[in-house]
């Protein structure tokens, strides 16, 4: 690497560890990857001879598939292990499972796990590069990268934009990665949620925090709704779905507070009618499906950059 600022370490664990320059390099590389994706023949040799393994301890449709397709489009071999079809069910611990995958000559392990810090733990235990595909409530770096890529594509920049993120921030790794990334690139991030769904002191991460959606989304250039993570919630943090939708859901009336051309985003899967009304999810400013396409491009860029660095 000529520019050390643009080089990457062994692992992508979170955006809290990356510099603005590194993030921009990934976004830039993803542009090339998106071009490749638009071709009739989606095959490049970037990762010939590389082996990528996805290790998923949580259910996933888009993240897992997009990593596997990204690897295959670039001629890597891609294999998947999940906690429900492996020795995990026989009681094997995380480190042993990761070392087993490592011992088979794997270049990159893409890991998703319900516990925060799981990717860090694996990274310390294996020679392979580790890409965090979501760990507990900590980070989901490639999701935030694809969000920033989508914003840049539509708005031409991230710097100076007002990005409102609305919903279950407490349980969200997406919100944490987005705050780290967006603020590093110079966006102004505001969070809107009932106090029961806000992580303590989240303002210290650099976001403005509001207990009303209205205040959070006023004049926003981007409105991102977060999925209500009922599966991670312990007890009643909000009374009913109807009350939540009434006060905090993004619907066609409320969205008028944002700028006219505000992008509508959601990391998926959507709880329609809860955090996002169908009319907003499917409106012409919605880029939810493009986020999915861009997810493949970002994961191609990440796999490429994090394997290339290791050959030098």
């Amino acid at each position: 690497m000529n520019n050390p600022e643009q080089s990457f370490g062994k692992d992508l664990l979170g955006l809290k560890d990356l510099s603005a320059t590194q993030i921009e390099k990934i976004l830039d590389t993803a542009k090339t990857m998106k071009f490749i994706l638009s071709q009739k023949n989606k095959k490049t040799g970037h990762l010939v001879g590389k082996s990528i393994v996805t290790l998923f301890y949580e259910n996933s449709t888009r993240t897992r598939l997009s990593f596997e397709l990204a690897a295959k489009y670039m001629s890597a071999s891609a294999s998947g292990v999940s906690s429900t079809n492996s020795s995990v069910l026989k009681g094997e611990n995380l480190i042993d499972t990761a070392k087993t995958i490592d011992a088979m000559g794997t270049d990159v392990i893409v890991v998703r796990h319900p516990m925060s810090g799981a990717a860090n733990l694996i990274a310390k235990s294996v020679n392979a590069g580790v890409i965090n595909a979501g760990d507990g409530m900590n980070e989901h770096p490639t999701q935030a990268l694809l969000d920033m890529f989508t914003i840049t594509e539509k708005k031409g920049r991230v710097k100076g934009l007002r990005v409102a993120i609305v919903g279950d921030a407490l349980h969200s790794r997406v919100v944490r990665s987005n705050i780290w990334g967006l603020t590093k690139l110079g966006a102004e991030v505001s969070i809107g949620a009932p106090a029961t769904l806000l992580p303590p002191d989240i303002a210290k991460m650099g976001a403005k925090v509001y207990n009303s959606v209205q205040e959070a989304i006023v004049d926003a250039d981007v409105v991102m709704a977060l999925r209500m993570q009922n599966e991670r919630q312990k007890s009643g943090l909000y009374p009913t779905a109807a009350e939540y939708a009434h006060f905090f859901g993004i619907n066609e009336n409320r969205i008028k507070l944002a700028k006219n051309d505000a992008l509508i985003m959601h990391p998926g899967p959507i709880n329609r009618g809860l955090e996002l009304s169908s009319s907003v999810a499917d409106c012409e400013n919605s880029v939810i499906n493009e986020q999915v396409t861009n997810g493949v491009a970002i994961r191609m860029a990440v796999l490429y950059l994090y394997t290339r660095g290791r050959e030098v």
Binding site: K16, S116, G117, D135, G136, M137, N138, E139, R173, R176, P199, P200, D201, I202, K204, M205, K234
Partner: peptide, 19 residues
Amino acid sequence: SDGGAMNEGYMSTYLGLRG
């Protein structure tokens, strides 16, 4: 304390751990 793994505060938010 149910399900908490560390003190609740900025650090638990920073690490994504239950406080």
